[in-house]
Simulated scan of single mutants.
Amino acid sequence: MTVRIRKYSWQLAPGHIRSIRQKVFVEEQSVPPELEWDDTDEIADHFLAVLPDNTPAGVARLFSTLGETGHIGRMAILPEFRGRGIGEALLRHLITESAGQYQELKLSAQQHAIAFYQRAGFHVCSEPYDDAGIPHLDMRCLAPALIQEQVDSKRFRPMLLGADTQPWLFDNESSMLDLMDSMVGQAGQRLWLYDRILDHDRYDRYRFRELVSSLARRHRLSEIRLLIHDDQPLVKRRHQLVELMRRLPSRIELRLVNSDYPHEDQPFIIADREGVVYRHDFTRPSGFAGFADSGRVRLLSENFQRMWDAGRRSLELRELPL
């Protein structure tokens, strides 16, 4: 169904936006009015989906925190218009709106709507919780620009670990970092990283560090292995991953490749049993990411384990002060 999306500030928003939310959330879902109407409305952009004859059908809002993360909320489609693709069109529009502005998108999804958001490139990032008496989970998209570029590709659950079977090719640093973060952000237990060095621009970023930290703290059996050739850049300049490793030594470990034994010439990141970000060489941001590539992950895991077993610990990093 053809649908048009109109954007408003709260001050200039037509009454349809308020009436749709009132009908869906307050009347249909019994959300208390004092929870539905909040101060965030004043700072958010509001979107109204209308049919070709200008009939209002759905709404959503979008606001940001610190200008880096966009928050999607209050998505609602009137009952009589559900099942016609209006929600998908509205969500695609919000992703397109966000692609050039935000590095990350977050939302709080009602549990029954998880699959709807997964089809658009969001993944679950919390345990279930109650909000206004309704089960919710937090979801996020760590690469809205890449998702927006692929909006017409008909991917099944894009970038969802264990589900997206099509490879993602990259040939620039920005796309590679988005794919790396999307992969690491979904790892449930295992993260193995192999590279020549822990490049500061690549691995010493705040978001990457927070994703690794979250994984390390999430599960008592979390296993994060960093396997590199050269630790001297880490000795000369503080690195967030090294500081994290020294605070969580039972979860994060670093070893140096033993050059006397066979080793890989291509760097890669492995997430759990199915995810991989693979570069063609150490010097260029060129390669591919596979979110459901268990066969390749199995082979790379075997090679990584051999290099890991032959590797050695860095004595210089161990002696650095915290």
Rank of each mutant, 00 (worst) to 15 (best):
A120Q: 14
L234H: 02
A292I: 00
R155T: 03
L179I: 05
S286I: 00
I147D: 03
E173T: 07
F116R: 02
L248N: 09
A99D: 12
R247W: 00
S222W: 03
L62A: 10
F291S: 04
D178T: 12
R207N: 11
L142Q: 03
R217D: 09
V257F: 05
I270S: 03
V277L: 14
L137R: 15
P144A: 01
L227F: 08
F304E: 07
I147T: 06
V124N: 04
F116W: 06
D293M: 12
R18A: 11
A216K: 10
L91G: 07
Q22M: 14
L78R: 04
H112A: 14
F268W: 07
I134L: 10
L317T: 04
R155L: 12
P56K: 04
S301C: 09
R220N: 15
H229C: 12
W168T: 03
I134G: 01
R207V: 09
G83M: 05
A120R: 05
T40Q: 15
R196Y: 14
P32N: 13
G121I: 02
T96E: 15
G67P: 00
L191C: 03
V31E: 02
E36I: 02
A271Q: 04
Q232A: 12
V235Q: 10
G83K: 04
D181A: 02
Y102Q: 04
S174Q: 14
L105H: 04
R84C: 10
S108W: 01
F288I: 08
E80N: 07
R218G: 15
Y261G: 06
L146A: 10
P158C: 08
P56Y: 08
F208I: 09
G185C: 09
V59Y: 05
M180W: 15
Q103V: 00
Y102E: 07
R209C: 14
E243M: 05
G133P: 05
L191A: 02
W308C: 09
R318S: 12
Q110M: 10
R119D: 13
F47Q: 05
A109C: 06
M307N: 03
A115Q: 14
R202P: 03
D260I: 00
M139R: 01
D260H: 11
V26N: 06
N172R: 09
Y261R: 15
L300Q: 06
G85E: 07
R82S: 08
R217Q: 15
E68Y: 13
L66S: 15
G275H: 01
V50W: 08
D130Q: 14
Q189A: 11
L107S: 03
Q11T: 12
Y194L: 10
L226H: 00
M75R: 05
A57N: 05
I228Q: 01
R251T: 00
V184S: 03
G15I: 08
E243T: 12
A109V: 02
E42Y: 13
